[in-house]
Amino acid sequence: MSKKFNEIPMGGNILEPGSAMQYKTGGWRAERPKHTPDDCLWLKNGTCLLCWIFCPDNAVKIAEKDGKRTYAFDYDYCKGCGICANECPNSCIEMESE
């Protein structure tokens, strides 16, 4: 930070795509989502993913490898908006106070 005029790119351009990742927004959170895997359709049969689609902060981390599916929240970025909990059709996500 605090670079001199000749140490930054021309015209205020930002050359590194997605560099906002350096800024962790998790500190904004008042409530954190908690995922109960039992009825999660993604884990069950690889469908739904409304929480992942609607998450404004890409804080729902899902993966599928060799038929195995995983699910986690990225608390570095989750702002605790609660959209995931509100939209989950099977009420697998609950918001808990930080």
């Binding site: 001199k4 005029f5 930054i8 021309m10 205020g12 795509p17």
Partner: peptide
């Protein structure tokens, strides 16, 4: 992919103008 025309606040606007 670069970002052209971001928002520069008190910390960097002045340096950009120095360049100009």
């Amino acid at each position: 992919p670069i970002t052209i025309g971001p928002i520069c606040f008190t910390d960097y606007y002045f340096e950009v103008k120095e360049q100009q």
